[in-house]
Structure formats: C-alpha cells, structure tokens
Design a protein around this nucleic acid. Structure first.
Lengths: 239, 239
DNA sequence: GTCTATACACAGATAGAC
DNA sequence: GTCTATCTGTGTATAGAC
C-alpha cells in the first residue's frame, strides 16, 4: 500500500466528521436542522483549524472565526456554548474514527511484520490526509482542561496498544527480538508525529510520505527483526 | 557518560542564562544595575516558563506574571518592551549556548560512533536538565513572528548538521551504511524531542533518561552500523 | 436560523509618584 | 528601580429584532 492507494480507499470515511459531530453534540447545538448543522459545523471546524494553526487557538478571536466562516458571532454561538466547548468538540471529533480505522487495519491472518507495516502506514497516511487536524490536536491538546486531557492521554495509550500488541505477537512467533515493546512503540510514535509536526523539514529534504514510511520501516525492521531482510535494492544515499 | 555525570560537568554553563540575556538585551532593558537585572530576569524567565507551560504563553496575563514574580506590572516593563519581546528574549536565550555545548561535545579524535553516542546523550541530557525551557521553546515557537521563526528553523538545521556530519564521516570511514543521513537525523531528533514533550509517557513506562539514551542508541546502531555490535547483555524485556 | 448591537470583563501598556 | 492607578483596545458572550 502507498499513499495514493490509501487515499482512494479511506478518504470517504474521513470526510464525514461533521456528521459525526452533529450526533455527538446534538443536545448542545441550538440549531436543529441536520443538514444546516453538518454544513456549518464543517465550515466552523475548517476555519478553526486554519486560523488555529496559523496563530494558535487562543489568539484566534471569535471575530476572526466569524469572518472566516461567513457566519455572524451570534450564529456561531448557536453551534457551541463557549470557545472552550468548540475546542473540546474539535479535539474529540475524529478521534474515535481514527482509532477505529487503525484497529481495522490490523489483519488477524497476516504476519506481525505485515501488520506492523500496515498500522504504521495507516497512521502516517491518515495524518497526511488530515494534517491540519493532527497538528491542531497535538499543539492545542496541552490547553485542555484536566478531564479532557486525561481522555486524550487514554486515547493515545489505546492507540499505542495496537503497536505494542503486534510487537508482542511477533516476539511470541519468534520473528521479533524480545525488547521493551512499549518503549519501541513510543519512539515509533514520536517519529510518526514528526511527519505532521515538522512538515517544512521533510519538504526541504524532498521526502515524500511514501519515502518516509519506507525509511522508518527499514529502521524498525533493522532493530526488531531476528532474521534481517535482504538489503533493499533502492539506495538511500544521502543528499 | 550518564546523566548524573553530565550534570556535574555542564550544569554550571547552563544556569548563567540570565547573565547572557542581560548582555544581549542591554539596550532594551531600562534597569541598568547588572546584579538587579540578572536576578530579576531569572525570576521573570522562570515564572514565564512555569505559567507558560501550565496554560500557554498567550493565556498568561501580565498580571499572572506580576503575581508569580513578585514584581509589579510597571517593574516588569522595565525588563522588556512588550509581551512579544519577552517571548523573543526567552526563545533566543540559551539557543546559542545549546548549540555551542553540542558542538563542543564532538571530539575530533574520537570515532564517529563515539561521537554519535556523545552528541545524542548531550542533547538528551540538556533537555532533561532544562525541560521547561525546551518544552516552552517547542510549543510556543509556532507563535513567533516570521523573522524569529526563520531564525529558529535555521538553528534547528544547524544543530541537525552536527549529526549529519557525524553520520557522513562514519560512512566515509566504512563503519556506517550509506543512507539518507539527513532523514536519519530528522528521525533521531523527533525521538529526542519526544523525551521532553511526552514526559508523562516515559514516567508511566518507568524509563529513565539513561534507559532512553541507551535504547535509542541501540536502535540507531542496529540501523546504521555495518558491523553489528555484540548483543547487549542487559535484557530489554517488555513490561 | 441568522443578524446587529451591545454589555462588560480583562487584556497590554504607560504615566507619574515615591 | 519599583510602585499604584489608570488609559484604551479587544476579548467573549448575549439580547432581541428579523
């Protein structure tokens, strides 16, 4: 699987986030016509991500948001009860489907190595397809209240668990070395996050998301596999 | 070298940051008595890092800062011309000495492998010793103005250059594989940053900074070295 | 369901006494 | 060199017309 193939398959699941947000927040939203809500929530989310990533969520004023969405301030407050509530909605939205897509990408009949490759690519490709959302979630997560922060941490541990389980299974099957799989996973995650956090660097290095995936996987395999794979024919020569 | 040893050697260089800030910003600071400036700048920096890391720099009001430092708002503005100026001072402060310490840690007579180990540990240990500063710089860097953002990027590339050079030298000497050293470096940096960005995770995993260093290095060596080292005797068994 | 107009709290910043 | 008091702009949020 490469990014182009991934996009064809999964892009449909991901665009329906505001529909999901409607059902999740129905009771807090004053507007009742579903079609209107879905349309405007999408505008509000997109605008918030755009402005928020440009100058930070806190620095974004409701007047900024009003201008970017084309909705008046009065109208905006029909869709959320406070600015903080908007932040919480955005942080929650998409998390469950993200986790779901990751879990579904695991194939019980496939080898741990195949699953490792699939999960890492799926994670990477999703962050590529929804870069503004991932960036926003990472950078603004620290400003959440205690409860929401805890929820965020639990989700992260849940998603880490997918990789840990694959590494453990690989060890059981005798193809991965016995190592600290939680720590390996943490380090893998750090590099996966870097892809959407430091776009400018990878653009400068002229590295595509497919390049990135293969390179990262070759590192992981060099470290985890007992039986090293034959050297890749394509050269990774430095620039 | 482990963290305890590092701290003994280098801690002196790092605590004099406000002294450095005095000479760098002398012309913008209204107060002229050096001793007073150094003392109060340190309080201001510490307080800004503390509050900034708790709720974000933008959300910190000057009244918050006044309370935390014990200085009045009027007094605060004798040390910087605006809130943004305070941010810029904080971002600049320590960067040069960070780069310097990293560069000085490289030993021309040592092998590339030794230098790789030293630089990575130095980076990691410095971020451990000054975690609030590193966290703040990373998280608030995106809110800088264009010029300062560019400076930050250039500094990052400069510091990446140290590792790239070591990897290239290792390849030249025939002990590292020919690879995309810039990309390897980017991925190493991503994991190094994770150490101070995701403290909660490594605390939960019960991983010390020395554990982290050794584990990361074992991954890098597995990927980069042509001649693999003999397996470590200490087990990395997962918990 | 969306708008305009406005309330009012709080932000950053400064003047001038001490 | 530091303080208190205050200016002025901007922030979030809402009331009430349409």
């Amino acid at each position: 699987m490469n990014y182009a193939e991934f996009k064809k398959i999964t892009v449909l699941h991901m665009k329906n986030n505001s529909q999901e947000a409607f059902t999740e927040n129905r009771k807090d939203i004053r507007v009742k016509k579903e079609k209107t809500v879905v349309k405007n929530l999408e505008r509000i989310f997109d605008a918030t991500l755009k402005i928020g990533n440009e100058k930070g969520f806190h620095a974004m004023s409701m007047r900024d948001l009003s201008e970017e969405t084309g909705l008046s301030m009065g109208a905006l407050y029909a869709y959320f009860s406070s600015k903080e509530n908007l932040m919480v909605m955005l942080q929650r939205n998409g998390r469950d489907s993200f986790q779901q897509i990751l879990e579904q990408s695991v194939d019980k009949d496939a080898s741990p190595l195949e699953n490792l490759r699939t999960v890492i690519k799926t994670h990477l490709f999703m962050s590529e397809a929804m870069q503004p959302r991932f960036y926003f979630t990472y950078m603004e997560g620290k400003n959440l209240n205690k409860v929401e922060k805890k929820v965020a941490v639990e989700h992260e541990l849940l998603s880490d668990g997918i990789l840990v389980k694959i590494l453990q299974e690989g060890q059981k099957q005798g193809i991965f070395k016995p190592q600290n799989h939680s720590l390996t996973t943490a380090l893998i995650k750090a590099t996966l996050n870097d892809w959407y956090l430091k776009r400018w660097k990878y653009a400068k290095l002229n590295v595509s998301v497919d390049d990135f995936a293969e390179y990262l996987l070759s590192i992981i395999e060099a470290f985890c596999l007992i039986q090293p794979l034959p050297e890749n024919t394509q050269s990774h020569q430095a620039g």
